[in-house]
Design a protein around this nucleic acid. Structure first.
Lengths: 158, 158
DNA sequence: CGAGTGAGTTTCATTTCAGAACCCGGAGCG
DNA sequence: CGCTCCGGGTTCTGAAATGAAACTCACTCG
């Protein structure tokens, strides 16, 4: 049915999705970013907040810094101390965070108790829990996932 | 600044995000789902398309099936053969997929060449590349990530 | 009957992960 | 001035996940 085009995958040509996942596609990075969105800044706070092992936290933070998602900035000099904050690119990941959180709320939260201490993201001005929508610029309308169609950008539609 | 509430994390009380990541938060599951959205159905097709090792593909598919993201359905009996398709819950992950793809396009695609064969998701009816927006039901408006505020659902704002 | 195919499973080396313990530069203190 | 504490890591070791390749199995085709 679907032609399943030649698809020269399995070649060492990582798509942006693959690169994105190589950066944040592990079980901790997303949680670190969520913690950062919540206001966590310092190494030990991440460690205590997430329950992550220190060596992994070190590596994850390094990778996120290298990937431009977080920035390591000194907040005092005498004993040199640093804090890890999200860059604008890191903040720009929030749609993905939100999508995952909302999906989880709707599909893996088998008991409402699980959601007890969940952090929710709300529309700042009014405090309403936000929803996410697909927006079509041409049609100036929102639409559900069922109206999505996948296509290849293979420069056939420049 | 932010009070950084007591945050009884590090207790064995996984949030929905953690559970979601335990299900799809590895480097392959998301790619499998993308392939499925593209129309891939069968084991060997996933394997060839993704270049994933077979044992891992087996486990990933099993986990996704257990997690309700995909369904394993026979498509012929005589030699019993199965296909793996997304469930509605799996399709509901597309907002997260889209968010990650779009973030990658904007933040990790250091060369436009990388985006060459990228799959894009478009609005079915008109074919325009979709955008994603946060939607506030109360205000009936879309808004950017900067207008997001994080808050705890800790039943203080029921 | 022998080759081929789809869908795995098994085996084994490599990589990554998690955890505990250790290190280091100041700060507080007696 | 020596001792201990704290934030912020690094170094080790053992457990788990990953990847590649080969093997299995059931069935179909020629």
């Amino acid at each position: 049915m679907s032609p399943t085009p030649p698809a020269q995958r399995s070649t060492p040509e990582p798509t942006t999705l693959e690169r994105t996942l190589a950066l944040v596609g592990d079980r901790w990075s997303i949680l670190i970013i969520r913690a950062a969105l919540r206001g966590v800044r310092r190494f030990d706070d991440y460690q205590a907040d997430l329950g992550i092992a220190r060596p992994i936290l070190t590596r994850r933070l390094q990778r996120l810094v290298e990937g431009g998602v977080m920035a390591k900035e000194p907040y005092q000099d005498h004993p040199p101390r640093f804090e890890y904050r999200l860059t604008p690119a890191g903040v720009a990941l929030s749609p993905a965070l939100v999508a995952l959180i909302r999906w989880g709320d709707q599909h893996v939260a088998d008991s409402p108790d699980t959601r007890r201490a969940e952090i929710v993201l709300v529309h700042g001005p009014c405090g309403t829990e936000l929803e996410q929508a697909f927006w079509c610029r041409s049609c100036a309308t929102t639409f559900p996932p069922t109206a999505i169609r996948a296509t290849s950008r293979d420069r056939t539609d420049t």
